[in-house]
Design a protein around this nucleic acid. Sequence first.
DNA 1: ATGACCAATTGA
DNA 2: CAATTGGTCATG
Length: 674
Amino acid sequence: MDETDPGGAEQLALVRDAVRKQRPKRTPAAAEQLPIARVAVDLPLAHLDRPFDYLVTQEQDESARPGCRVRVRFAGQLLDGLLLDRVETSDHAGRLGRLERVVSSEVVLRPDIARLCRTIADRYAGTFADVARLAVPPRHAREEKTERDLPTTGSLPIVDGTPWESHDGTARLLDPLASGASPRACVPTLPGADWPTLLAEAVLATLHSGRGAVVCLPDVRDVDRLDAALATVLGGPDRHVVLTAALGPQARYRAFLALARGDVAVAIGNRAAAFAPVHDVGLVAVWDDGDDLHAEPRAPYPHAREILLTRALEADAAVLLASPARSVEAQALVESGWCADIAADSDRRRRAGPRIVVAGASPSAPGRDPAGRGARLPHEAQTVLRESAPAGPVLVSVPRSGYRPALACRTCHAPARCATCQGPLAQPESAAAPACRWCGTVAADWVCAECGGTDLRAPVIGERRTAEEIGRAATGVPVRTSSGDRVLDRIDDRPQVIVATPGAEPVADGGYAAALILDASLVLTRADLRTGEEAVRRWSHVVALVRSAADGGRVVLVGSPSAPPVQALVRSDPIGFAARELAERRSARLPPAVRLATVTGPPDEVAPLPAESWPDPSEVLGPVPTDDDDVRLVIRVPRRLGSALSSTLQRIQSQRSARKAPVLRIRIDPYELD
DNA sequence: ATGACCAATTGA
DNA sequence: CAATTGGTCATG
């Protein structure tokens, strides 16, 4: 550079000036108090599942609150993050980057919920980011700008507690809840019980202690019923919010914010509500915890019951598991002494329910022989249908929807397959021709691939075809169906027959005069771990909708009288059944008696896993092929080693993700094992 | 994931 | 000898 050139020196000075002006922006003054932000960065990688520290600038000091959303630069790219905490010093040796941006100062992940996410991630061998995604709904900026709703004022209604009297729950649950204690109870609801009011009263009692409540229910219809009951019991619709994915992003975020801001203290919803940011939660409740809808289908597949039980432990809240049946998991909690069993004695149970009888049907050939003893609708069932119909609605429960949902060869009984794609054939409507359920091709001139037969039979009858059959038998009474996407919610007291699939039964205003449970044998032939438990659960829901025997209520179950699930229903003993199931799980070493994990992935990836250092003692089974080209490994350990098993699996995922190996699917205590 | 770095392998 | 590929490491 020529020193005699004044212009050049001037330019250089200008450049230096510009550089100096930029400097303070790159390393701005850090906040005076708690200048370090611990951030959970939204990364899909298991080996980076830990907080990272960033500097909070003075300008960000106000808005960078623990629990808020931030943007950070991580490994060169801009990523979303959740600010977990503000601290004075960092353990990190290197230079810290600054928070790129505080997205909003709205607190969406309080420290207590963050801790819950961490516990659940660890339990299910997943990552914090995956669980936090379940706990924090997507942001809707417009909702954040809307004015804060004023918290509902005015005094709470008095706890009436009427439905709890008959459940022996006033002194054991309602009173402790109202006085600020945290009882834990498993409650089998009585047939005919007004369960939405029962749950709403427990919520009201909790509110009286100055605490909030979270209730998870399996499907939207159950949520709607509790929603209505809460509006009545709490003296208005504003003391609780509904939180389901079905709400749509804006309404969901509005409900979420009302809870997060402390404007509302009660959250109800499906499994998505388990992480609801209710302040000072005093009660967590689950309706019908045995319903598989409570199991989250996204990784790491947590179960709403387990999330809420964990939350109750961490927040010292009360627990209420209510259901007309009893899950094996709930029974295990009762037998371990962790949960009180608030059950009416079996005598009172029987008196509350309808008279239940079993009508025999041949389990080998349901649907055949329409007149004889093996008939799908045997004589006893037809008699009850005819006698009860004038007294009110009759519910007919069938396990399958559709018309003829499965077809087989009349000669050799082989399942009928599509000539084009080998898919299963079904007859979708009364007038329709058989067609493939996979590709839709109409099977015009079907020929059995096994024996050359040309006639089809239906080993399984759906709800539509059943309605058609019953329409012929019960003349003069309207027959309607309720299933799948055409669900009836409520029906009135007039004589009518409702053919419904499990979970789609409408509530009858004055209770059903009678119910027929068809194809019980068909349901019980499935060789699944949960077959019996699931059958008792579904049938118990049907029984709960029927009038008591004193009011003429009757139930006919068509199936084998000797099958244990049928016995449990007839004797009104879902608890005894759950206890026996649990004993069987113990001797078969299956959950919940043990902790079990499945690892699924490509054969080459799963093959080296049996040599891993699993907790001791443990059992490693497989790998065995699954439906697709993957294989599955099963590892089981005693319950006390459950967390050791999870951390081993977490370590395996971390090591794999660090060397860019494909992630394996890991499930802890899966709902079913195929 | 993304990028940096290093070492081994491959090709002209 | 350069170019390419593959493994390891760190990311605040």
